[in-house]
Structure formats: C-alpha cells, structure tokens
C-alpha cells in the first residue's frame, strides 16, 4: 500500500486509489464539482487541483483522478494549488452567476466575486460538469441527454435540443446536478413531470385514492421490473401516494387484534 503525504499528513491508501481518496482519508477538504463516486470520473471541472511533488518541480494535477501508484508527496493547501482552484472557480462563477450552490462553494474556498464578465452565451448557469449526462447513461441506462456542440457553445441537451422520448422523468440528473441548474417541475393539470431545461416530459402515476402525483409512471414500471417482486399487495401499494399508503397501513393496524401472551 503506497503512502500519500498530503500537506504533511501521512495516509496509506490502496494502489490506484486517487489523491482525493487519500485527502478524504486524511480529513483534508478539497473542493470538487464534477466528481461523484457513483459515476466514472471525467476530471473536467478542474476544481480539485493540487500540487504533486515531482522532485525538482511541482506539477498541478487533479486530485479526483490522479492514481496513487507509489509513495507520493502532495500539497493541497499550497499557495499555487489554492490560486489555481480559485482561478477555476472565478471562471465558473462567470459562467453560472446565479447558482446559489456554486456561490456557497466559492465562499468556502474564499472566492467572493469574479473578475470576469459573463461572456458565454450558451446554456444558462450550467457548468458542463457532465454529471447529469453520466448518471443518465451509466446509472439509469437511458442516455436521454448528452453533450451538444463544442467549446463555449457546448451544452447539455437531448437530441436535436428537442424534448427527449427516452427520458423517463426519473429526475436523477436534477438530483446529481451540483449547481442546481437542472430542476424537476410538476404539471398538475396534465399529470406530467418535466425535467427543466430539457423540456422532456413524462406521464406521472396518480394515487388511486387521492389523485395526488406520485412519481413518473415509467420509473415505477421499470423499478417493479427490476425488483421482480411477486407480492401483488406490494405492487398495489406502490400505486398509492406515500400519504395514502400510510393511511392504509394505519387502517390495517386498526383491524388487527393483539393477543396478549
């Protein structure tokens, strides 16, 4: 097991673990945005820069995907590393000035404003970290969204920037979005769920008792297929909203006779 000396703190990690793993083990905080343990690592946001000791020089590397293969010395809090991270953050703030999540992270890093104007015209407040694209493809298995365009015009979009038919309305993209740009909206009248900004819509399952919206019908169907649960009562209970399901359970409890031993 190689040893990582990070800001003077020694930790041992498995071979091919990342610097980020080592830092977390050592209790050293390194900001991340595009990193998520559930999906593959792209290292595209460049926010987790740290300095790696190369003997006679120091190299800036991304902590999230630098594999530890032998004993290494890392400086996560050095002036140069912090300056690099702050520089990247300033660029991100110029791209997504309205994100509260990003502002909070920036403040934690000591960045309170950006010197740069907003010069890119494409997708509003998206930092193009790609987590939504990855979760849709790798975890949900749908690939309903992907990257369109290139360079500053790059954007996350469904094919041809039209509402996607492949979107099942699970909302995983909204859940994983680190800057709160992807949002889930409910349309009560049409009984539909919409994933914004992709405009993809999916029919929702309606509670059989009270008519409340529960979840995307397709998600419900696929979930049941996946768990392959035989009990019909369980299947039925999933067609109720959580509130009605609770009420049903309570009602059932009322009919049960407790026998004192």
């Amino acid at each position: 097991m190689p040893t990582v000396t990070i800001d003077g703190c020694k930790v041992r990690v498995k071979k091919d673990a990342t610097i980020l793993d080592a830092a977390r083990k050592a209790g050293i905080w390194i900001p991340t945005l595009c990193y998520h343990p559930s999906v593959s690592t792209d290292a595209s946001c460049r926010l987790c820069m740290v300095e790696l000791d190369r003997g006679d020089w120091r190299q800036l590397v991304t902590a999230c995907n630098y594999p530890v293969r032998r004993d290494i010395v890392v400086y996560a809090s050095s002036e140069r590393a912090q300056q690099a991270r702050r520089g990247v953050m300033e660029l991100l703030l110029a791209r997504a000035p309205e994100s509260e999540e990003l502002k909070a992270l920036a403040e934690r890093m000591g960045v309170y404003e950006t010197r740069y104007p907003k010069v890119t015209e494409s997708q509003r407040n998206c930092i193009l970290c790609g987590l939504c694209v990855q979760v849709c493809e790798e975890i949900i298995g749908k690939a309903a969204i992907g990257f369109a365009g290139r360079g500053v015009d790059k954007a996350v979009a469904a094919p041809f920037r039209q509402p996607s038919e492949d979107c099942i309305g699970c909302g995983a993209c909204a859940a994983i979005c680190p800057v709160g740009t992807i949002k889930v909206r409910f349309h009560e009248d049409e009984k539909e769920i919409e994933i914004s900004p992709f405009k993809s819509r999916a029919k929702m399952l309606v509670c059989q008792e009270c008519g409340a919206l529960i979840a995307s019908a397709q998600v419900n169907k696929e979930a049941l297929e996946k768990v392959d649960f035989k009990s019909e009562r369980f299947r039925r209970s999933l067609r109720l909203c959580p509130k009605c399901r609770r009420l049903q359970t309570v009602a059932k409890l009322g009919t049960v006779t407790f026998v004192k031993k």
Partner: peptide, 12 residues
C-alpha cells in the same frame, strides 16, 4: 469544451 479553463479561459 470539456475542461473549464480552456473553454471559459479562452473565451475570456
């Protein structure tokens, strides 16, 4: 357009 500094930095 994959990484932030190149994509945003060049535009800036």
């Amino acid at each position: 357009g994959k990484c932030t500094p190149c994509r945003e930095g060049l535009a800036q």
